[in-house]
């Protein structure tokens, strides 16, 4: 059985020293090994941005696509081969700005994939512009007087879009993050894991220390029930979205693959392409 080391490759990430994304990379590698995957059974599909490079830093099948479109690509991969474990991944700009439409609809569609967002509240690769996750008043190169748009709450949006698995973590908490990714990989449906992953170069507000001070860890509440959607929404609002842990999980809803009529258990990619002569004749007969 593969260990987390087998999910490593020899590529040196181009992230800045201290970037939160390193821990997310490590957590994915550990979680993949912990749930018993072999590297070839995993496909990591990522978007564009600093964090989007992650698919190249994990020894697994990986596709680094175009900005904001990791989710539809990942859903295509899963539909083609449901035997693969599919992770989609990218930053908050990728998933909550340019790709927000896909995020909401991927949640609704509920294919069995795991979406890991590295949320640093800023655009890093383009050197410091505002993100939908930036706080109001946040000063960046594109908002020199401070952001005047309200901050997007991906967790609230996910819940209202019908998410079946919503979690949030902090890149410094490798143990919790790994456990949540494992749970996400094992969840039969779409799992959203938003990860506070500080940008040490361009975000001088939402720093490691700032997160440590402001985070509310759900693991401390013994009576928190992640199957209660209303309680989950309340908790998100109460904490201003600063909570970490498993926020909500609906184990009852079937995934898209299981609901789609006729969609087979065996990977589509392994099936014979040729129609039989008999099937072809039947198809033609309908046009007579």
């Amino acid at each position: 059985m593969a260990t987390f080391k087998e999910f490593r490759n020899n590529v040196k990430p181009n992230w800045c020293p201290g970037c939160g994304d390193f821990s997310v990379q490590a957590a994915i590698q550990r979680a993949a090994a912990n749930v018993g995957l072999e590297p070839e059974q995993l496909a990591v599909i990522s978007g564009i941005g600093c964090s989007g490079r992650i698919s190249g830093y994990i020894n697994a099948y990986g596709l680094h696509g175009i900005h904001g479109r990791a989710l539809p690509i990942a859903q295509g991969v899963k539909l083609a081969n449901r035997e693969l474990t599919v992770i989609a991944s990218g930053g908050d700009g990728d998933g909550f700005a340019i790709g927000m439409g896909h995020t909401v609809h991927a949640i609704r569609r509920n294919l069995d994939i795991t979406y890991i967002v590295m949320d640093n509240q800023i655009y890093g690769l383009t050197k410091g512009q505002t993100s939908p996750r930036s706080a109001e008043g946040f000063k960046t190169k594109s908002t020199p007087e401070g952001s005047i748009e309200s901050t997007l709450s991906p967790l609230e949006i996910a819940l209202s879009a019908g998410a079946t698995f919503v979690a949030q973590s902090f890149s410094s908490d490798l143990k919790q993050l790994t456990a949540l990714i494992e749970a996400g990989l094992q969840h039969k449906g779409f799992s959203l894991i938003n990860v506070f992953s500080p940008c040490v170069t361009f975000n001088k507000i939402n720093t490691y220390d700032w997160f440590k001070e402001n985070i509310v860890n759900l693991d401390q509440f013994e009576d928190y029930d992640p199957s209660n959607r209303v309680a989950a929404m309340n908790k998100i609002m109460e904490t201003g979205g600063m909570l970490t842990g498993l926020i909500y999980q609906d184990k009852g809803r079937k995934s898209y693959e299981d609901l789609a009529v006729g969609f087979r258990q065996e990977a589509l990619a392994k099936q014979d392409l040729k129609l039989s002569a008999g099937d072809f004749d039947k198809l033609l007969a309908e046009f007579k």
Binding site: R69, I73, L79
Partner: peptide
């Protein structure tokens, strides 16, 4: 569905084409 597959009505054409790219990449 009679041949094991399906049609996904996506949220827009960008999703449609990128989903098709993902599925072709994975062999369908």
């Amino acid at each position: 569905p009679k041949f094991g597959g399906t049609v996904v009505q996506t949220e827009d054409e960008i999703a449609a084409v990128t989903m098709a790219i993902g599925a072709n990449y994975a062999g369908v």
